[in-house]
Amino acid sequence: MANITAADVMKLRKMTSAGMMDCKNALIEADGDFQKAVDIIREKGKLVAAKRADRETSEGAVESRIHGNKGILVALGCETDFVARTEGFQALVQSIADVAIKEFPADTDALKACKMANGETVEKEIEVFTGKTGEKLSLVYYGRVEAPFIYTYLHKLTGKLGALVGFNKEVPEDLAKGIAMQVASMNPIGIYPEDCSQEILDREYKVAVEKTKEELVQKAIDAALNKAGINPSHVDSEAHIDSNTAKGWITPEQAEQARTIIKTVGEEKAASLPAPMVENIAKGRVQKFLKESTLTEQEYQMAGDKTIVKDAIAKVDKEAKVVDFKRISLSD
């Protein structure tokens, strides 16, 4: 059996960033062979990752980089805030961001395959750190922006929220920061209403139709209940009907009358809803959704009034436009 010294342990630790005991045990198992010891530590990381594959990684850190007309946004997730705050974890996030802006890969899989400064891939370094911490780590997000002018905002208080915004030209820093903060806080689904896919529009229209029908039916039921002298809020669920009957707020006869009204009026109203009216209301809801969910149509949070984002930008520079943005929040 090889004689494992403290210097050997430190050497392996520098090579892998693993814990002292993990390094010592790996060297003992490898009989002093450093390459085998490195492989053992890597395999341990894969094993831990496999065992904890179903764990959520809602903690972690977000980092960004900008170089010229290129910008990147990355998020490394872990299970606990304790691990996220360690120097090792933060250093790993920084290193991944450095690699991302240098290589500027097309997507997350390509970033995982990029080589770190020590020659190992991003994916393998994450596996090694997984073995070291005993927690699941995952590259939760990677996004990139190419634009003439780019600005980034990171929420330093939590370290779990970030945005990257590309403009068609340089704009004042206060405006760029304001728009980046807008993206981070308001989570728009696109820049312009026309950017929304048909799939999103169809989904929102379907939701709007169902919500409109439910509200119209409920409005008819409430009117019938009020006409019968029954407070609708006292009978809005079976649990409330039972509890309010027990409290004496409604009589058993009123409880049965309410059940009959809810059933009969609800069915009659649902069967007689005018389709054109439902469709018009639903279309209005979709337009409201687009106004609230697309960046240029949102109320600009930094304005303090009803000014929308596109008008706030035009007020500073009529030729300036947002051409792309990326956002990630580990808390969503």
Rank of each mutant, 00 (worst) to 15 (best):
K160E: 08
K36N: 14
R144N: 06
K124I: 14
A106W: 00
M21T: 09
K283W: 06
K136Y: 10
L139F: 01
K160Q: 10
M1A: 12
K219E: 11
L164S: 00
I41V: 14
G119A: 03
A84W: 06
S233I: 11
I281K: 01
W249K: 15
E127M: 14
K169F: 01
P105Q: 04
C78V: 05
Q90G: 15
S95M: 08
G284D: 06
P193D: 09
T133E: 09
E56Y: 14
A2H: 13
V145F: 00
L161W: 03
F149K: 04
Q254E: 10
V145D: 03
G77P: 00
Q35H: 12
K44T: 04
E103F: 09
G88K: 11
A163E: 07
E268H: 11
D236E: 14
G143S: 07
A275I: 10
K169S: 01
Q287H: 14
E292S: 12
T158I: 12
L164G: 02
T57Q: 11
G32E: 04
P276V: 05
C114D: 05
E43K: 15
R52G: 08
A312V: 09
I281D: 00
G304L: 05
K14S: 13
A7T: 14
D8S: 14
K283P: 06
A18Q: 04
K306G: 12
K156M: 13
Y192R: 14
V74E: 02
V217P: 06
V171L: 04
I281S: 03
M21Y: 01
T121N: 11
E63N: 03
I281M: 02
G19W: 08
Q257S: 13
G284Y: 08
D195A: 02
T294W: 05
M10Q: 15
G119I: 02
E204M: 13
I72S: 00
V316S: 08
F129V: 07
D332I: 12
T86S: 04
V38K: 09
A180P: 05
T133V: 09
A228G: 03
N3Y: 14
A246D: 07
V48C: 13
S185N: 13
E87P: 09
D305Q: 07
L330E: 00
A110Q: 05
V83N: 10
T108K: 03
G162W: 03
I262K: 13
D107S: 00
G266F: 05
V122F: 09
A26Q: 06
N118Q: 00
K51T: 07
V122Y: 07
K219H: 11
A255D: 04
L154Y: 03
E194G: 10
Q198R: 15
T264P: 01
V235L: 06
S95T: 08
G162A: 01
A275W: 10
I96H: 02
M116Q: 12
V140Y: 02
A100G: 06
I200E: 10
K115Q: 11
